[in-house]
Write a protein that binds this DNA or RNA. Structure first.
Lengths: 147, 147
DNA sequence: CTTAAATATATTGTGTGCGATATAATATTA
DNA sequence: TAATATTATATCGCACACAATATATTTAAG
């Protein structure tokens, strides 16, 4: 059989599996904060950058509006964020943290440490891995804009 | 602000994003074969290993039955696979290829080449990346069975 | 041989993820 | 300025992904 179609020779399969497994690693930890992984990413953005437009969050996290709108509504239901139309431009929806959302950051401080520990891999390799991932991402994104 | 919670310092975020982007790379190519990425993985297993139990496919692809059952039913609708209860053990459902499913392999031969090209990264780095991904996966899986 | 435990798959519910389309508001242009 | 194009979200439909639960079948214990 053609070697190229063998599962073990697929490059993207371990990537696909690892991404899922890592999210599964986050799941029990984030459940403590009543967050899912993509919701956690939204919180990271808001904690770091402050109030953001929906489109800004989408741009930073590479998520479409069809994903973000319902996700943000669920976070609003949980009283972590506020969704407000911009008075300057009524098309824009500004996402900001509630007091609860701000407060949640304290509980989140320990999340990255726990994850790094359970990944159980040398910091060097983690860093190298991250860099290759980002390099491939850049390739993909630049070839998209070029095309 | 605590450095550890900054988006750019997250190791798992580029992994999560890259996995999605790579599936988006596959999407137009696999659409030609009327397959999604997880469905393509199922086909890889069947082409390589022949007929398999649902649980075997789940084990190989790290997918739960709640994901696989409806996915396999969609593939059955498209007349790519057959689902048959095992006469020896009525609990088991055996998944096998239809003639169409076997035929589809020819059209799939070119998929890996196209993907590798669009990833646009040196084979060495791809290989190194794959190895680290598999290493982390092994860590996660072994620590799960140990715990 | 009958009941309890284990196994294999199916079902349900919730939450992404994305393409396609719709809607409303703003910007542009004739 | 009225018509048109663009922009920002929202909505809808489909397909995962997984936890929790249900169902059917087989195996094991007594």
């Amino acid at each position: 059989m053609s070697e190229k179609l063998k599962l073990n020779n697929q490059v993207c399969f371990p990537l696909y599996t690892l991404a899922k497994e890592v999210i599964n690693l986050y799941r029990p930890i984030l459940t403590e904060l009543d967050l899912t992984y993509p919701q956690y990413l939204v919180m990271l953005v808001l904690w770091e950058e402050g109030a953001q437009k929906v489109s800004d969050i989408g741009c930073l996290l590479k998520l479409e509006t069809g994903t973000l709108t319902p996700l943000l509504k669920r976070m609003e239901q949980k009283n972590m964020i506020k969704r407000r139309r911009d008075v300057e431009d009524e098309r824009v929806v500004k996402i900001s943290l509630t007091d609860n959302g701000i407060e949640l950051k304290k509980k989140a401080e320990c999340v990255p440490v726990q994850i790094i520990q359970s990944l159980n891999i040398s910091p060097d390799k983690v860093q190298a891995f991250k860099e290759v991932a980002e390099e491939i991402l850049n390739h993909i994104n630049s070839s998209r804009t070029t095309a």
